[in-house]
Simulated scan of single mutants.
Amino acid sequence: MSEIEAFDFQLARIISVIKDTGAKVIGLQFPEGFKRRSLGIASGIESETGTSVIISGNPCFGACDLDVALLNDVEILFHFGHAHLDDNKLSQKVYFIETRSAVDVKDVVKLAVPELRGQKIGLITTVQHVHKLEDATSILREHGKECVICSGDSKIAYPGQVLGCNFSAAREEMCDEYLYIGSGQFHPLGVSLATKRRVLIADPFVNELREVDSSRVLRQRSAVIAKSIDAEVFGIVVSTKPGQERMALAEELKEMAKKHGRNAYVFTMDLVTPDQLLQFKVDAFVNTACPRLAVDEVGRFHAPMLTPMEFEIVLGEREWEDLIFDEITGE
């Protein structure tokens, strides 16, 4: 199946929305994996509607990461690849195009059956495959497995959906293990770290199974904590992205540092990168922006980058064995 066939970009719906609203200036925002399709989609929209289309060239990490500057220049923004976040204050001008996958998951789920050790299986995936969870459930039940698809908190649009920063749909206490349907590594890794349960990845694009191994990440996180134990000056990083901004948490962490006789300063920025932080001479950073930063970019910052929970360990407010994965949760 070609890339064009694999995902539904809902061009007919987009054109219908534009005609119904009478909008003349349209914005398009894509995550990195879909940017290559942007020119064809923009061309189709312009030819069918006569509108002017502006494509966001900024990085996009999720529904939390709307291009706020582009929103000021367009009447409608179509945001691809993510589901609506309930707390997104700018969403009245935004249409979320979830870009569902047409790839069949049945074969890879059948492949997973003999590898599943437990009886009660939690099913999880991204928004691209949530409509396929019923197919997966049918197959597992045919092979004598019990399936659980949990609703998450208010940030989760669909039962069984997980985000890179929110694993609330994987909180079923009675699950023996989880089966993640999708191609990425970070989401199932986050579930493994958050739940301490075995997670098996069923990748429908290459019909392949992989078991999540979180040991390497845990060693990396332990090393970051160890390097920060004697730190005296901390930089607490806050993102200004609409769905990532956690200033209240940053202020709590700053007060916590003060209580323990350490110095802490709050830095705000849109895109958090090693280069952006290079000029700030601190002993360690604490990340309150996208939780993936500390894990994905480990070793790239000039000072250790801690999660809020790791910062608590450094200060003695939390025990090592109580380390949990950072999440941005809802109600």
Rank of each mutant, 00 (worst) to 15 (best):
E32H: 10
R300Y: 10
D326W: 08
K110L: 11
M305G: 06
L163K: 04
C64Y: 01
F205M: 06
E321F: 01
T240E: 03
A63N: 11
A231L: 03
V25W: 15
V237S: 11
A264H: 00
L163D: 02
C150P: 02
I201W: 04
E321W: 00
R197L: 13
K132C: 04
S43V: 01
F30L: 14
E331S: 06
A202Q: 13
T99F: 05
I54G: 09
E211S: 09
S52V: 14
L71F: 11
F301Y: 15
A63H: 03
T273E: 09
V148C: 12
I14W: 01
V199Q: 06
E98K: 12
P304E: 06
V53R: 08
F205R: 07
V217H: 01
K24V: 05
V266A: 03
S47G: 04
F34C: 08
F30N: 14
R37P: 00
H260G: 00
K227R: 14
E5T: 08
G33V: 09
V224C: 15
W320G: 00
S239A: 13
C60H: 14
Y158D: 07
I324G: 06
V266E: 02
T137N: 03
M305A: 08
C147Y: 00
A170M: 05
I236V: 02
K281Q: 15
G44S: 10
R210Y: 08
A6V: 13
G330Y: 07
S154C: 00
